[in-house]
Design a protein around this nucleic acid. Structure first.
Lengths: 154, 154
DNA sequence: GCCCCATGGTTCGATGTCAAAATACTTCGG
DNA sequence: CCGAAGTATTTTGACATCGAACCATGGGGC
């Protein structure tokens, strides 16, 4: 792919496109693998992310905090919460400190479901990483953090 | 985030989740940045990918080949091609060697548009990478390739 | 105290995607 | 050759997302 660009437009540096192309492909493939792992639990990736976020924090969270934590639009957040609430996995409770706000409480059934799903999920991720050494995993994770830092700095 | 998992479930290794979480966030943020860069050209990321793929190959390509090259479902491929064809950027020509197939030809207007857009695009990507040294970029790109390899191997 | 504006969420309309069914053509075994 | 099986693409229907408009509440300046 880099070679093709070099032939057609030697003046364009194709390496950034290659890097972000790999990033995108990796995320797409990983997402497909995660979806396959989570489907038996009746969850999609987005729903799992919500439940896992609530679970690992262990505390109630406002809808807006969840949205920004998940890089998600308010509309999509409402949508996910509707589904999870309808499934009886979490509850929206009014924020006593702010009449506009809503706090999200993970219900017992949701907690039980995450606890089951997360083990499969991590196993699946580890399988995806099977070809990388511990050292490579650390480096990759660290470099992705650096990239995020660089992108956040605009 | 790793710390939160360590508190709640010390038996679960959260590092894979952190790695893929960063991957996902990085792709999301990069995608938003690319969309912003391409919008003035009247393209979204997916449409640009199609045009850029045709452009850099320099040869006509079948719809199916494009779909698998872009990790895209057939349905979504048709949809993108419809839009690009309606915009007069590419043409579907019947495959002389296979009556079922369609070959995609980049039209002049499409070629001109990609040539303009790709420069902005690469500039935008380089800006996102601003905080990383050349060495870090190389390593990151190489490790992503290793990850893709590992995931493809199942 | 009371407007005014900022903020937290939801609703609405449009877009882009996918899975699965439908369509059209090719290829191969008999 | 003929029909069955397979392959390439499009169509259809459902779904998750986003941006923008909308309600409701909160928090100051005057």
């Amino acid at each position: 792919m880099i070679d093709q660009w070099a032939v057609r437009r030697p003046d364009v540096d194709a390496r950034p496109m290659a890097l972000f192309g790999r990033l995108s492909r990796a995320d797409t493939l990983a997402g497909a693998a995660m979806a396959a792992t989570l489907r038996p639990h009746g969850l999609n990736r987005g729903e799992f992310d919500v439940l896992a976020t609530l679970y690992r924090r262990g505390t109630e969270l406002s809808a807006g905090a969840l949205a920004s934590s998940l890089l998600l639009s308010p509309a999509a957040t409402t949508n996910r919460l509707d589904r999870l609430e309808a499934a009886g996995l979490l509850a929206r409770v009014p924020d006593p400190a702010d009449g506009r706000g809503v706090l999200l409480r993970l219900l017992d059934s949701g907690r039980v479901l995450v606890e089951k799903a997360v083990e499969d999920h991590v196993r699946g991720l580890q399988a995806l990483l099977g070809g990388l050494s511990d050292d490579e995993r650390d480096q990759l994770s660290r470099l992705l953090a650096r990239l995020l830092q660089s992108m956040a700095a605009r």
